[in-house]
């Protein structure tokens, strides 16, 4: 039984085709100011052709994120539901997923079956998000892909506002004019974001393994800062609050979770509409 998960994010759409526990194909498409409906349709066709699967063989197409606009979907699942399941698929030990996307971040606690137990989201402000980092990279003349590596080279990180993206951007402009090194600026931002994410996890009372998912899940600078803050906490309190982990496919966690839940629902859905 082949299912597809489509995670419509603010800056890109992620596609995963699964059969049972196996990923048959995966694909990520940047939005680049295109109509998300068209990007979703084209991406789905591309996914099917790269898997060598006829679209009619897909029994259930599940969307997540902003996927309610995908007209050819069979069903839709909310982000916390899919990131919890996707995170668990990528790391069965994980009991929390930290989804850091382009416009927001959220901490989701789950049990060993992927059931969401608790979640907390950042508020409206985008200062803890990938879009903010993209904006900053433009100011600093770096590419998004370089951010993580440059950040890890910092020796003297510059503190940055963790409350508001607008204030943080003003901070960065001041830092540039004061001649602060790019690596120190980026690490300061990473520390600021990491601090907000730690607060989310603490608010949820997260414990054990936390898997980073979403667009920033592979940002080495952010991972290093999360590890640094966790160690500092351990030294202060004598115990490790949680361990962070990620996975090369963590950016696809939402789509993976959607595809897995699609398989779970496919038979029941057919039974229901036949009833």
């Amino acid at each position: 039984m082949k299912t597809v998960g489509i995670d419509v994010g603010s800056s890109s759409i992620k596609f995963v085709m699964m059969e049972g526990e196996t990923i048959l194909a995966k694909h990520q498409e940047k939005m680049r100011r295109r109509d998300p409906k068209h990007v979703a349709e084209e991406g789905f066709q591309f996914l099917c052709s790269s898997a060598g699967v006829d679209p009619s063989e897909v029994v259930y197409i599940a969307t997540t994120g902003e996927g309610e606009m995908v007209t050819f979907r069979t069903g839709h699942f909310y982000g916390m539901t899919t990131h919890a399941r996707g995170g668990l698929y990528l790391n069965p030990d994980a009991r929390a997923a930290l989804d850091v996307g382009a416009l927001h971040a959220r901490a989701v606690l789950m049990n060993e079956r992927g059931r969401v137990l608790q979640y907390k989201m950042t508020s409206q402000c985008a200062s803890g998000s990938g879009q903010f980092l993209e904006n900053i990279s433009r100011y600093l003349g770096t590419s998004v892909d370089e951010i993580g590596l440059i950040s890890t080279q910092s020796k003297n990180p510059e503190p940055c506002s963790s409350i508001c993206a607008v204030l943080a951007e003003t901070d960065v402009i001041n830092m540039v004019s004061r001649g602060i090194k790019t690596a120190d600026i980026l690490k300061g931002i990473h520390l600021s974001i990491a601090g907000r994410l730690m607060k989310l996890l603490k608010a949820c009372k997260a414990e054990g393994t936390v898997i980073l998912t979403g667009g920033l899940s592979q940002d080495k600078g952010l991972l290093a800062c999360l590890a640094e803050l966790t160690e500092a906490e351990e030294q202060k309190k004598g115990s490790l609050p949680f361990q962070f982990t990620s996975h090369p496919d963590a950016v696809l966690a939402g789509a993976i979770g959607a595809a897995i839940w699609a398989a779970f629902r496919a038979k029941r859905f057919q039974e229901q509409i036949g009833a």
Binding site: H76, F77, Y78, T81, R115, W261, R265
Partner: peptide, 17 residues
């Protein structure tokens, strides 16, 4: 919408749990 959506998810995935 988010509340209704997550409720819908829970009914679909855990309704018989």
């Amino acid at each position: 919408k988010e509340q209704a959506g997550t409720f819908s998810d829970s009914l679909k995935l855990w309704g018989e749990a």
